[in-house]
Write a protein that binds this DNA or RNA. Sequence first.
DNA 1: GCCGATGGTTGAGAACCTCAAATGTTGTGG
DNA 2: CCACAACATTTGAGGTTCTCAACCATCGGC
Lengths: 138, 138
Amino acid sequence: MSDDSVVAELTELVMRVARRLQFDFHAAAAELDLPPAQALALSELGESAPMRELAVRLGCDASNVTGIVDGLERRGLVTRRPDPSDRRVKHLVLTEEGERKRETLRSRSHAKAAELFELPHGDDVRLRDLLAQVKTCR
Amino acid sequence: MSDDSVVAELTELVMRVARRLQFDFHAAAAELDLPPAQALALSELGESAPMRELAVRLGCDASNVTGIVDGLERRGLVTRRPDPSDRRVKHLVLTEEGERKRETLRSRSHAKAAELFELPHGDDVRLRDLLAQVKTCR
DNA sequence: GCCGATGGTTGAGAACCTCAAATGTTGTGG
DNA sequence: CCACAACATTTGAGGTTCTCAACCATCGGC
């Protein structure tokens, strides 16, 4: 059983770090002229996937994904490919340009994150292992 | 200098925990029939403050705060009190009802967070101390 | 008293999300 | 085989939250 104030501080700290990570990610996305939602979707498309799967990865409604992918397709970053064995599903595949943008997005936001998580030797691993113990799904 | 993969994992983990905290907070807010933004503002009003100060605490534009406070005022949770020494500023003061709602909101979301951060003895404090070292503002 | 800075509000506009309903497709039990 | 439930995707309406630019009132220094 944790001390009350410790829980409050943990909440505060996690939210603060998350806001910062998100801010940096949005900044990196803006540099590439991508709205946040599209950038997030792009970064989830390392493995190509059907729309439904993307909705799951993003944790949002499927109807939402349509618009986001519309945007990515308009920019020529992704294509909808019909599934040969099931004509309902459309697979999302990154174009070369999409692959390229995904990579620079990844590396830029990663660079800022690395700066953020610059800790005394070994502490980064300790932090990771402790965070991994947090039961994010009961 | 951290290992690349460690940074990626840290980012992933922090975002995951933050999403969960936020989800629980929104759920607690919904139980009290409060939209998320109003709930967040309410929770920042432990100390009464002028509009401008609230905007800073929330990290958003001042014009945004107007609407949020309008909502809280409509529900009778907060009142705008003129500052006697500066007629431009309006201090936000919680009503009794506002105070009550703020407290139950705090305690409910806190309970869920405590469950989340249930770690082996001492690890919660270690986690807090490590997170506190993350340089969220360069 | 003038003037630049400040607190607050308003209105337009955008991004993002959800829900309900529609469409086309699949697969299964009868 | 066929009706029917389930599924993937899209569309459209509607809501929340946010920003930006413009505006008014007030303040403080010069």
